[in-house]
Simulated scan of single mutants.
Amino acid sequence: MPEPISSFPPSTMVGQMVWGSDAEGSFEPPPPRMPAQRSAAALAAATSQLLEALVAKRVPRVEALRRKLHQHRPGGLGEIEHAANALHAEMEALDFLAGRSGGEQAAGFGRHGAVVIAAAERMAGVSRVLVERHAVDSPVARLLWIELVLESDSLRKRVRQGAHWLAQMNRDLGHRRTAVTAEISQRALDELARRGTTLHQRLHTVHRLCGHARSIHALCERMAEQRNHLCATLQDKVLPAAAQLQQSLQPLLEAVGYRPLVPEELMTAIEARHEMQVCLTQVAAHVVQLQAGDEELAAQLVQMEEKAASLA
Rank of each mutant, 00 (worst) to 15 (best):
P2K: 06
E3C: 02
S6H: 11
S11T: 12
W19R: 15
S21F: 06
G25W: 06
R38Q: 12
A45V: 04
Q49W: 03
A56L: 01
A64Q: 04
L65K: 05
G76N: 00
L87N: 01
H88W: 09
E90C: 01
E92A: 12
R100Q: 15
E104I: 14
E104R: 13
E104C: 06
A106M: 09
G108K: 15
F109A: 09
V116P: 03
I117T: 04
V131N: 01
V131G: 02
R133Y: 10
E151H: 05
S152R: 05
S154F: 10
L155D: 03
V159N: 09
V159F: 09
Q168Y: 00
Q168N: 09
D172W: 11
H175F: 12
R187Q: 15
L189V: 09
H204G: 09
H207R: 04
H212G: 04
A213L: 06
R214N: 03
I216S: 02
R222G: 14
R227M: 15
A232D: 12
P240V: 07
A242F: 00
Q246A: 11
Q247E: 03
Q247Y: 02
S248P: 00
L249V: 03
L253A: 04
P260R: 00
I270T: 01
I270S: 02
E271Q: 06
A272F: 01
A272R: 03
L280A: 00
L280Q: 04
Q289H: 09
G293N: 09
E295Y: 02
E296R: 08
A298F: 04
V302Q: 06
Q303T: 02
K307W: 03
A309L: 08
